[in-house]
Design a binder for these strands. Structure first.
Lengths: 186, 186
DNA sequence: CGTGACATGTAACGCGTTACATGATTAA
DNA sequence: TTAATCATGTAACGCGTTACATGTCACG
């Protein structure tokens, strides 16, 4: 049981999902491809933390819908209360900033601008997810459980939004610093 | 040549360093242990991007001081102008936030508080690094090269500072949200 | 007629962490 | 005397990415 395994359990507490849906749904939380996820689902099923139901489909490939078991919920519960390890950030840009003086000022600016545009599109994506989450609550947010899972998603998405905004602010500031240190002609 | 290899080259453009010093110095930029770094130094030396000088010491173990070569600088230069891959963030807290409703409100708050305290200590560490960087410039910041490398470090450290501040703000906000949704007795 | 979504899996390889290995000096 | 700093290396294992593998339907 590694971190990703617990993450899959976390997603399954909200509702039953297929491996394919888990692969899509985990994207804003953790970077993982389907080739990592399918084997973990198999091993968690052997451990009794999840179980699956096979759905035969004629138009699309058959699928397996995974549901978390009572045992799965209780191991997740124990894990959640354990202190969280420090976040690990791996960003090439750190090294590129460090050696920025090796490039032309124009190229340095372009580097930051590309990152800023990517961050802006990510921010937009998170805002859409927040709206979808709120809509879910408005439509059928009656049970205590749905309110609770929606709240968790809300916290998480706000975390991502705040980080993205900070990153965009950094890019804007750094581009300004670059222009101050080598003003463009004109 | 992976990202970490270019990162080591980046550090070596500022001044010659030992593998040990590189292991320490890379910490704010990338997570990597010495067992990753020593083999990369050997392979980069075979490629001709760096070279080393052995220093014999009587009180401490002997050391190897690595210097970047002209060829090393030129491959780094080419790499820096390439677009930076999106940053990868791996944070257990994402999953724990998502399943926060499985814990007692007190434990949920403690989870966020621990992270906030860690972030605050990181912020302090970065502020010290910024001061050290500025001091370096004041003391002997005459050459154009030193000014340039100091500038790169400055940008990078500001990036980390802004990210940490955003993360601290998130924790404060999230603790507030938790208190609002389940007020403490009294 | 090709691309993308749906859907699940395995294999190979590279990257990252932990542990093993050695050994002197210095401060608590 | 125990831990920490300096200093370099290897080995084993686990995690993450890319590629291989298969097949249908819908849309442009």
């Amino acid at each position: 049981m590694n971190t990703l395994s617990y993450g899959l359990l976390a997603l399954l507490t909200a509702n039953p999902l297929t491996g394919y849906e888990l692969t899509q749904g985990i994207k804003p939380l953790w970077r993982a491809g389907h080739s990592q996820i399918y084997p973990l689902l198999q091993s968690m099923e052997e451990k009794g933390f999840i179980r699956h139901e096979r759905i035969e489909q004629s138009d699309k490939p058959d699928k397996k819908i995974y549901t978390i078991t009572e045992e799965g919920i209780s191991v997740l519960q124990e894990w959640v209360r354990l202190p969280a390890e420090p976040a690990v950030l791996r960003d090439e840009l750190h090294f590129k900033l460090y050696s920025l003086w090796l490039t032309e000022p124009d190229e340095a600016k372009a580097l930051l601008q590309r990152r800023m545009e990517f961050n802006r599109s990510e921010l937009q994506r998170y805002n859409l997810l927040i709206k979808a989450n709120e809509a879910l609550l408005d439509e059928r947010g009656e049970t205590r459980e749905l309110k609770a899972t929606t709240f968790g998603r809300y916290l998480l998405l706000q975390k991502r939004v705040m980080a993205m905004k900070a990153s965009i602010e950094f890019c804007e500031w750094a581009i300004g610093e670059l222009e101050r240190s080598s003003p463009p002609p004109g």
